[in-house]
Structures are given as structure tokens and as C-alpha cells.
């Protein structure tokens, strides 16, 4: 049973469509990044999948069950955007609350807290936690009871790079154990790019849903070849021969479509010792994200 199937989901909020014919499937063990600018509808889609908010059209099935139904709630785990827990409680107490709600009486809370790096802070009040520690605690409750589907809303926002990597390592483990993971984010970073698939929402419409490579190909963004000439004099000749642009004394930049890459390399190798070095830069994540999500910000 597919953990998450959305078909033609439509939702209106005060007159305007915030989700417009959105379809999305997440298979067991898959990690899908759901990208889009602020206000694109990512959180709304996640809340609709949780049954926290209703939809005006289309269908959503969580492991075959309706969103918000008993079986669906038992199958999903959720990490809300910018969640804060009751500061008077300790991390262990909060996790015990969620274990109780999930019916996970036997859950090894100590091991879970250890897994997210909170073993030392487990019995401290959450009021004393840093933003990163709270996010880890949120992740610990996601790990409770092996969910079939995990919905993580901006899990890395406000985290330092080390915490982000730790968080993604845990997400990778979760997926490796068979959980379907949907990660909402408002940017495309190296970490999101390491997910299996990338879905991009733009003003409520799904404008892309594929692997990073396929998206890069579909976008047709130019590949950049950076060539270093062996000597100053050769730079102008290389630029003329290859149709590139000289950017300083000995460097030339050649932009070409993915298909044109080999042709450009052949021509460069024909120039023999005039070329000292070649660096090939595929389209950057930033370029790709901007291409699909539509400029601005």
C-alpha cells in the first residue's frame, strides 16, 4: 500500500486556490523534498494529509485510509513547522506524553533521546533547550513507533549546518527502515538534493516532480565549462574558437546545453597545450530551484 497518494487535490482559502490540482505519491522508503517559496502551499498540503484541514476537491489516501482517520493517524508521524513544546516539561516527559498518545507503551525513550543526541539533556526543562535541541526533540517523536509516513515541515530551518547534517542522517535511517518521508523546505540545498525526488510547488500548483537529474535535464539550464588558458595570449584564441567569453586574463567561460558539452570538449582538446585546465560546472541548485519555482526571492 502506497504510504501517500494525493490526486488532484484542490483547496481554496478565502477565495483563492492554495492547492490547485496537486498530485503526489510517496513510496515506502522514498525521501521526497517538497519545495516552494513561503506561501506556496507546502504546510497546507501537509495539514491536509494529516486531516487537520479539509480539502475542496481531489483525494488523499494515507496507506489507503482517509486523512485523519484512526488508521491514518497511526501510520503517520509529523514534525510541525516551528514547534515549541511546553517549556516546564523535560524532554523525556514530552516524549513520554507522545508515546502514551501513540500507544507505544514499550517505547525505549532513553534510546530515542540518545539517537537524536539529547541523552545528556533528557531530564532538563525544555525552556533551557536551544532551537536545535527542540528540533531534535521534535524528530525524536517522529521516530516513535516506526511510522509508515513521516511529514517533516521545514525541519532544518534555523539549524546550523552540523545539526542539519545530523538531522538528515536520521532521516536517511528512517527511510532506510522503510518509512516514506516527505520533507517540506523553502530552499533547495545540497541536503534536499540528496533526497530521492524533488517536488516543487508554485502558488499551489505542482510544477515539478522528479529526480534532481531529470529536473536539471528538463530545465535545460546551461552547463558552464571554465577553461584556463596556458598563457595570456591563448585566452582570446580559445574564446574565439569555442564561442566562450573571456572573464579575466587566462579564464574563459563557455555556456552550453547539456547535449553540447561533448562537442565543446572535443573542440577544446583540439586546441592542444593552449588549454591548461577545464572545470565543468553543472547547473547550480539555486539556478534550478529558481527556474522551477519562478524567480522572486
Amino acid at each position: 500500500m502506497t504510504p501517500l497518494l494525493c490526486h488532484d487535490v484542490f483547496k481554496r482559502r478565502s477565495g483563492t486556490a492554495v492547492l490547485d490540482a496537486v498530485s503526489l505519491a510517496v513510496a515506502p522508503g522514498a525521501r521526497v523534498a517538497l519545495l516552494g517559496h513561503n506561501g506556496a502551499g507546502k504546510s497546507t498540503l501537509i495539514k491536509a494529509v494529516l486531516g487537520l484541514t479539509g480539502i475542496d476537491g481531489g483525494t488523499i489516501a494515507v496507506c489507503g485510509d482517509a486523512p485523519g482517520s484512526g488508521p491514518a493517524r497511526r501510520a503517520v508521524a509529523y514534525l510541525p513547522e516551528a514547534v515549541a513544546f511546553q517549556g516546564a516539561l523535560t524532554g523525556r516527559e514530552v516524549l513520554a506524553l507522545f508515546a502514551g498518545l501513540a500507544g507505544e507503551r514499550r517505547a525505549d525513550l532513553g534510546a530515542l533521546l540518545d539517537r537524536v543526541g539529547l541523552a545528556a539533556a533528557a531530564d532538563r526543562r525544555i525552556a533551557t533547550y536551544s532551537k536545535g535541541m527542540r528540533q531534535r526533540l521534535g524528530l525524536a517523536q517522529v521516530l516513535l513507533g516506526r511510522p509508515r509516513l513521516a511529514l517533516l515541515d521545514e525541519p532544518t530551518s534555523g539549524l546550523d549546518p552540523v545539526s542539519r547534517h545530523d538531522l538528515y542522517a536520521i532521516i536517511d535511517d528512517l527511510a532506510a527502515a522503510g518509512t516514506a518521508v516527505l520533507i517540506a523546505s523553502h530552499a533547495l540545498t545540497e541536503l534536499e538534493a540528496r533526497t530521492d525526488r524533488i517536488a516543487i510547488l508554485r502558488q499551489g500548483r505542482m510544477v515539478a516532480d522528479d529526480t534532481l537529474d531529470a529536473l536539471a535535464r528538463a530545465a535545460g539550464l546551461p552547463i558552464v565549462l571554465r577553461v584556463r588558458a596556458a598563457e595570456t595570449g591563448a585566452a582570446d584564441r580559445i574564446a574565439a574558437e569555442t564561442g566562450g567569453a573571456r572573464i579575466n586574463g587566462t579564464s574563459i567561460e563557455i555556456r552550453c546545453a547539456a547535449e553540447g558539452k561533448m562537442r565543446a570538449l572535443h573542440r577544446l582538446s583540439g586546441l592542444g597545450p593552449a588549454v591548461a585546465d577545464i572545470d565543468i560546472a553543472p547547473p547550480g541548485l539555486e539556478d534550478l530551484y529558481r527556474h522551477f519555482s519562478g524567480g522572486m526571492s
Binding site: 495539514k47 494529516l50 487537520l52 484512526g70 493517524r73 497511526r74 503517520v76 508521524a77 509529523y78 514534525l79 510541525p80 513547522e81 516551528a82 514547534v83 515549541a84 513544546f85 511546553q86 507522545f98 498518545l101 501513540a102 500507544g103 521534535g138 517523536q141
Partner: peptide, 13 residues
């Protein structure tokens, strides 16, 4: 206000 209500309601309670 804490943003925890959605999380609470995502559990089977």
C-alpha cells in the same frame, strides 16, 4: 500559540 496543537491532533487521540 506554541504551534503544538497540530502535532497533538496528528496523534491517534
Amino acid at each position: 500559540d506554541r504551534g503544538a496543537l497540530g502535532l497533538l491532533l496528528s496523534y491517534p487521540a
